[in-house]
């Protein structure tokens, strides 16, 4: 093992990575699938894949990128395999957003947030993922393109269409009917 690889290995302890990124991976799967049990299943599988692929990952940034990408793809795979189950959305069972994140803002209007999540949940799968990565993960457009392996222009147009839908559905609720 080279010294660089040894340093990387010591930095990338699996247990630390699980604890550090469990919220990110679970949240991507959860927002996409809208079902806590399904999200846990997908998130566990993603971490198991990480466990197998850990030796190939070079840095913490690489791990974050890898986890986001695999979480997105496994969530899509899961939704396609369990189409009927994914449609059963129980809004009351959904956990409320975590406030552990120091950068997180507190929701000013829980009803509006809930309505927004409902609209996002009804978006087409790729559009939903673009919105999740953009607003949950605060990812840049280029990063989203790389994560989802789609062209940058597709990300832009998808986000543009998502905005149009959101404006149409909840623009009035936030006093921006003409946004």
């Amino acid at each position: 093992m080279t010294s660089a690889a040894a340093v990387a290995a010591s930095e990338l302890r699996f247990e630390d990575l699980v604890r550090e990124h469990e919220r990110m991976v679970f949240s991507i799967a959860y927002r996409f699938l809208q079902n806590p049990a399904s999200a846990e299943e997908v998130a566990q599988d993603v971490f198991l894949e990480l466990f197998r692929a850990l030796s190939k990952l070079e840095s913490r940034a690489h791990v974050v990128f890898w986890l986001r990408r695999v979480a997105c793809h496994r969530s899509i795979d899961y939704a396609r395999r369990h189409k009927n189950a994914a449609a059963e959305v129980s809004w009351d069972e959904m956990p409320e957003p975590s406030h552990r994140d120091p950068h997180a803002h507190s929701a000013s209007d829980p009803m509006l947030a809930k309505r927004l999540r409902q609209v996002i949940a009804a978006l087409p799968e790729k559009m939903r993922l673009v919105v999740i990565l953009r607003y949950q993960e605060d990812a840049g457009l280029e990063e989203i393109a790389q994560t989802m392996r789609i062209p940058l222009n597709t990300v832009k147009s998808t986000l543009h269409r998502a905005h149009a839908i959101l404006r149409e559905k909840i623009g009035a609720a936030i006093g921006e009917a003409n946004v």
Binding site: R23, L112, I170
Partner: peptide, 20 residues
């Protein structure tokens, strides 16, 4: 405003207890 509301609505959630 809409972007702010989206960020608030899409905050990360805690995984179930014992997930790790």
């Amino acid at each position: 405003r809409l972007e702010r509301e989206l960020k608030k609505a899409l905050q990360r959630v805690e995984p179930p207890a014992g997930f790790a």
